Simulated assay, not measured.
Amino acid sequence: VLVTRTRVGMLVRAGATNPRMVSALGVDIRRLFMIVFGFGAMLAGFAGVMSGPILSVEPGMGDGVLILAFVVIVIGGIGSIRGAFVSALIIGLVDTLGRSFMTDIFKAFLAPAAANQVGPAIASMLIYLLMAGVLFFRPSGLFPAAGR
């Protein structure tokens, strides 16, 4: 809502598209982008403070989240906020349901010992298989950004 419905959001979108024109209209584009970067850094710091007591804080603790964020962006469409939101929901559902039910699904047509080995392995690959399918059928993502 902030990016699509406010004046600041309009300036950020216009500055990302054509910074020279926005600068010619009297907006200090460098300062605007500095403020946006600072706001993003503040949100990232806030997220770190909130997750610090829950997770163990260690170097490289964000690697798993970074890979998932890449998958979300690719599936949703690069540059699309709506696509990122929808694809994050889809990935969360696919990952959770896959980890919950994949072993039971494989027990329907495999021996229980084999299903206990294959189920978790396939469940951990489901989001990447989803990403491959989306890239095969819609290379620009589910909700590509306008103009891409």
Rank of each mutant, 00 (worst) to 15 (best):
V49H: 05
V49W: 09
V49P: 02
M50K: 14
M50V: 15
M50E: 09
M50C: 10
G52Q: 04
I54D: 03
I54L: 12
I54P: 01
L55I: 13
S56L: 14
V57I: 14
E58N: 13
E58S: 14
P59C: 07
P59D: 08
P59W: 12
G60E: 05
M61L: 11
M61G: 09
M61S: 12
G62F: 14
D63W: 13
G64E: 12
V65A: 14
L66T: 13
L66K: 09
L66M: 11
I67P: 02
I67T: 08
I67W: 10
L68V: 13
A69N: 05
F70R: 00
F70H: 05
F70E: 05
F70V: 09
V71W: 06
V71E: 02
V71P: 00
V72H: 00
V72E: 01
V72F: 00
V74R: 08
V74D: 09
V74H: 03
V74C: 06
I75W: 08
I75T: 02
I75R: 01
I75D: 04
G76A: 04
G76S: 02
G77V: 01
I78A: 12
I78Y: 11
I78G: 06
I81F: 07
I81A: 13
I81T: 12
G83T: 03
G83V: 01
G83H: 01
A84S: 15
F85M: 13
V86C: 07
S87Y: 04
S87H: 04
A88P: 03
A88T: 13
A88C: 10
A88R: 03
L89Y: 10
L89I: 14
L89M: 11
I90G: 00
I90Q: 00
I90M: 07
I91T: 09
G92K: 00
G92V: 02
L93I: 09
L93D: 03
V94C: 05
V94W: 03
D95Y: 13
T96E: 08
T96Q: 11
T96P: 01
L97T: 09
L97Y: 06
L97K: 04
G98A: 01
G98R: 01
S100T: 14
F101P: 03
F101C: 02
M102Q: 01
M102W: 07
D104M: 06
F106L: 09
F106D: 04
F106R: 03
K107S: 11
K107R: 15
K107D: 08
A108V: 15
A108S: 13
A108E: 11
A108P: 04
A108W: 12
F109Y: 06
F109M: 08
F109E: 10
L110W: 01
L110N: 03
P112Q: 07
A113F: 12
A113W: 10
A114Q: 15
A114I: 13
A114K: 11
A115P: 02
A115L: 04
A115W: 00
A115S: 08
N116G: 14
G119Q: 05
G119E: 07
G119I: 00
